[in-house]
Simulated assay, not measured.
Amino acid sequence: MLNVGMILYPGFQVLGLSMSATFEVANQFAGKDVYGITLLSEHGGMVKTSAGFCVETEAFDDRRFDTLMVLGDNVVRPASAGLVDYLVESSSMTRRVCSICTGSAALAQAGLLDNRRVTTHWEHAPDLQATYPSLRVDSDRIFINDGPIWTAAGMSACLDLSLALVENDLGHELARKVSRHLVVYHRRAGGQSQFSVMNDLDPKTDRIQAALTFARQHLKTDLNVESLAFVANMSARQFSRVFQSETGESPAKAIERLRVESARLMMETANHSIDTVSTETGFGDQERMRRAFIRITGQPPQAFRRSLRSS
Rank of each mutant, 00 (worst) to 15 (best):
Met155Pro: 00
Ala252Gly: 00
Leu212Gly: 00
Val137Phe: 01
Ser310Pro: 11
Gly282Tyr: 14
Leu107Gly: 08
Asp200His: 04
Tyr35His: 12
Ile144Ala: 03
Arg187Met: 07
Ala51Leu: 10
Arg291Ile: 06
Gly190Lys: 04
Asn145Cys: 11
Cys158Arg: 10
Ile294Trp: 10
Ser245Gln: 10
Gln209Asn: 10
Ala303Gln: 15
Asp138Phe: 12
Ser104Asn: 06
Ala229Leu: 10
Arg305Trp: 03
Ser179Cys: 13
Met6Phe: 05
Gly44Lys: 02
Thr22His: 05
Thr57Lys: 04
His124Met: 14
Thr120Ala: 04
Gly72Trp: 09
Leu71Cys: 02
Met267Lys: 00
Trp150Thr: 10
Trp122Tyr: 13
Arg264Lys: 14
Val166Tyr: 13
Phe23Val: 06
Arg188Tyr: 08
Ile7Gly: 08
Leu159Ile: 11
Phe214Ala: 11
Ala229Gly: 11
Lys177Leu: 10
Ser235Val: 10
Val4Pro: 04
Leu308Thr: 01
Met234Ile: 05
Gly72Val: 04
Ala26Lys: 09
Val277Lys: 00
Ala232Ser: 05
Pro10Leu: 04
Pro251Lys: 01
Leu174Tyr: 08
Gly45Tyr: 14
Leu165Tyr: 12
Asp202Cys: 07
Arg176His: 12
Asn199Val: 00
Tyr35Leu: 07
Leu228Val: 14
Arg305Ile: 02
Arg96Cys: 11
Ile37Cys: 00
Thr22Asn: 10
Val47Glu: 06
Leu258Asp: 02
Asn168Ser: 13
Asp114Phe: 02
Arg264Ala: 08
Met155Phe: 02
Ala105His: 10
Asn74Arg: 08
Thr131Leu: 00
Val76Glu: 01
Ser41His: 12
Gly11Asn: 11
Leu201Asp: 03
Gln192Trp: 03
Leu2Lys: 15
Val76Gln: 01
Ala157Asn: 03
Phe65His: 08
Asp222Lys: 14
Ser250Thr: 14
Leu182Ala: 13
Phe12Ala: 01
Glu226Val: 10
Val70Gln: 02
Phe53Gly: 12
Ile294Asn: 01
Phe214Pro: 02
Leu174Met: 13
Glu167His: 05
Leu135Pro: 00
His218Pro: 06
Gln238Pro: 00
Ile274Trp: 11
Phe65Cys: 08
Ile142His: 09
Asn224Glu: 11
Phe65Ser: 04
Ser80Gln: 00
Leu2Val: 15
Ala51Asn: 12
Met266Arg: 13
Asp202Leu: 01
Phe239Ser: 07
Asn27Glu: 08
His272Gln: 15
Gln286Tyr: 15
Phe214Arg: 00
Gly52Thr: 13
Asp146Ala: 14
Ile294Val: 15
Ala105Ser: 09
Leu128Cys: 03
Asp61Gln: 01
Ile208Thr: 04
Gln299Asn: 13
Met19Ala: 12
Lys220Asn: 11
Ala108Thr: 04
Gln244Ala: 11
Ser156Asn: 08
Leu135Tyr: 01
Glu287Thr: 15
Ala215Thr: 03
Val178Gln: 11
Phe65Ala: 02
Gln217Met: 14
Glu56Cys: 04
Ser90Cys: 09
Ala110His: 06
Met266Asn: 05
Phe243Glu: 13
Pro251Glu: 07
